[in-house]
Simulated assay, not measured.
Amino acid sequence: MLGGLLRPLLAACGLVLLPAAAAAAVRFNYNNGFYYHDVSNGNGNGEIYFNGVRLFVESPQASVSATRGSSVTLPCHFHYEPELSAPRRTRVKWSWLPANAVGEPVMVAMGNRHRSYGGFRGRVRLRRSAPGDLSLVINELRLNDTGRYRCEVIDGLEDESITVELELRGVVFPYYSDKGRYRLNFLGAQQACQDQDAALATFEQLFTAWDEGLDWCNAGWLADGTVQYPITAPRDGCGGSDLAPGLRSYGQRHRLLHRFDAFCFSASIKGSVYFLASPTKLNFTEALQACAENSSHIAKVGQLYAAWRLTGLDRCDAGWLADGSVRYPITKARVNCGPPEPGVRSFGFPPRHQKFGVYCYR
């Protein structure tokens, strides 16, 4: 009845009222090539059904490990099921997802056009070794490149993504200011690590270090703004002897007002660290000059840790470092070289007129 009254009016406007069965079969064609329609005989929730073609995005590796300064490929592949008879124009967006922070764009590409962003500009490209290959190649890896990366493939209404974790091989070490313990706010901790050729460690990096035996009873900043410390041997004063081993957490702290130490992460270095042979011991000023005269620079704490952990540097001689601390690296523990475990031994920050050896970096 209503349809009979409406048809003349709609016809005058150039419109046609379709029967319900015909209306249910109407398909809307969007310029991305996908057809879809709201199926009236579905479950009543108005779901959108595609015409049987589905976009899949996959990665054969959930995580990739690499060394600082090298190149790495983060795998990402896409395909359609069923396969399409003709290629389609898809867009890919790679993003970096640092801990507890908004994702940052790395690269966006469509066809032969692409754009990279921020510190990744000029260092990234798509591999494109085969159809559907959108793997991201990052050159000249930096300390802060570690973290999760999202590969998002967009084809009109279709949008699928995967994440790949990028890990840098390196070492976590605790660090405190020459002014004493618990003197660093978050920004100061960031700067302190950077000054030692390192970066604030992530939670994952500290967890790995704890799993490998790091035990340190002083709380330090991490890259996500939390304050934590690793305990392998529970004891009083370090969270209590009745708690299980693990990471003790203070949670998020005020990044300007609260002060702690820092946990830094150092990765492989391009040069080498060595103990400078000298006929006499040196004060700090003399140590700086001695390295310069040997065509080197005085080594930083992060460089010494990286050389100890990644190249096996072992020397039972205390030496000056660039921050005014005195340390020495031991990979094979022995009598008169400190505790029975491998590690970097520290004398703290002695007066700079005292005499020691020196570690140089070239």
Results as ranks from 00 to 15, higher is better:
262 A>Y: 00
188 G>P: 07
243 L>G: 12
270 K>W: 15
221 W>S: 01
177 S>I: 06
226 T>P: 04
209 A>K: 06
182 Y>A: 01
283 N>L: 12
222 L>W: 01
222 L>N: 07
266 S>N: 00
200 L>S: 02
200 L>M: 03
252 Q>P: 12
258 H>M: 06
194 Q>D: 00
247 L>F: 04
228 Q>D: 09
243 L>R: 10
213 G>K: 03
275 F>S: 15
207 F>D: 15
245 P>Y: 08
213 G>V: 08
254 H>C: 06
284 F>S: 15
278 S>P: 14
255 R>G: 02
196 Q>Y: 06
237 G>M: 05
207 F>L: 13
247 L>G: 10
248 R>C: 01
251 G>N: 08
186 F>I: 04
200 L>F: 05
232 T>A: 13
210 W>Y: 04
258 H>S: 02
222 L>R: 06
256 L>R: 04
191 Q>V: 08
203 F>T: 12
241 S>W: 12
186 F>R: 07
224 D>V: 09
276 L>Y: 15
284 F>E: 15
247 L>Y: 07
180 G>M: 02
203 F>A: 06
230 P>Y: 08
189 A>D: 06
178 D>S: 11
213 G>R: 03
243 L>C: 07
273 V>H: 14
288 L>P: 12
204 E>W: 10
265 F>G: 09
270 K>V: 14
199 A>L: 01
239 G>H: 09
288 L>A: 13
188 G>Y: 02
191 Q>F: 01
275 F>H: 14
271 G>C: 14
207 F>E: 11
186 F>L: 07
288 L>N: 14
262 A>Q: 01
229 Y>G: 08
257 L>R: 02
279 P>Y: 11
185 N>C: 01
246 G>P: 03
285 T>H: 13
281 K>S: 15
178 D>P: 15
235 R>V: 11
226 T>L: 07
236 D>N: 12
184 L>V: 02
218 N>V: 00
271 G>Y: 13
181 R>I: 05
237 G>F: 08
263 F>V: 01
260 F>Q: 08
274 Y>M: 14
192 A>E: 02
227 V>G: 04
290 A>R: 11
198 A>F: 09
199 A>R: 08
273 V>E: 08
289 Q>D: 14
205 Q>M: 11
228 Q>I: 14
243 L>T: 10
215 D>T: 03
200 L>W: 00
238 C>Y: 10
230 P>R: 06
235 R>W: 11
231 I>K: 11
258 H>T: 01
216 W>I: 03
224 D>M: 00
289 Q>E: 15
250 Y>D: 09
237 G>L: 13
250 Y>E: 06
206 L>R: 11
211 D>R: 12
290 A>P: 11
191 Q>S: 07
257 L>G: 07
194 Q>G: 10
218 N>F: 02
257 L>W: 04
253 R>D: 00
284 F>T: 11
182 Y>F: 07
264 C>M: 05
185 N>F: 01
183 R>N: 01
191 Q>K: 05
209 A>G: 11
242 D>I: 11
214 L>M: 08
187 L>P: 08
216 W>C: 05
210 W>I: 04
262 A>N: 04
241 S>F: 14
185 N>I: 00
179 K>H: 02
269 I>H: 12
276 L>E: 14
249 S>V: 00
225 G>W: 03
252 Q>N: 08
186 F>Q: 06
222 L>S: 00
223 A>E: 10
211 D>P: 15
200 L>D: 06
283 N>W: 10
250 Y>S: 09
277 A>V: 13
